[in-house]
Amino acid sequence: MPTFVYMTRCDGCGHCVDICPSDIMHIDKTLRRAYNIEPNMCWECYSCVKACPHQAIDVRGYADFAPLGHSVRVLRDEEKGTIAWRIKFRNGKKDFDLLAPITTKPWGTGIPKIAELPEPSDDMRNSQLLFNEPKYVRMDDGDLNTLESNGLKLKEGVYY
């Protein structure tokens, strides 16, 4: 189900317009409030819902995790670095919250400074590996990653 805007809560600030990856959140030229111009093209990424400072945008959640008519609302708190969800069933009996971190370091401090790294040598340029590959995927550094090497066991019914 695509996003929709509660017009009485929206103040037309434009955060949703800026963040929408499909570029379908627009400001209505007459009412100066945001609206979804093309609901068919909305993939329900929730970016606008999370970015809205007034919680004026909502999405009807999928029926595969709660029966229809439920409410699923989200509160993204940048300063705390968390995201909170609340899912409430239609009859109000099931009402639960979820809370998860969205960053572990202050925003903007964990950006890799690639410009300061040494230039790759010709060997590295001609290699099949991409930038940083041995280090990040450990193809030949510390052997291959396997279930055994990580102390895990193959579980029945789990697809790896």
Binding site: C13, G14, H15, V17, D18, I19, A51, P53, E78, E79, K80, G81, T82, L99, A100, P101, T103, T104, K105, P106, W107, G108
Partner: peptide, 23 residues
Amino acid sequence: DIPEYMGKNPPNMGLGIKREKPN
């Protein structure tokens, strides 16, 4: 998950996308 990934006393993370005005 909160204490595991963010510690017992998480710092103020400052502003992320809201650092910039939408324009």
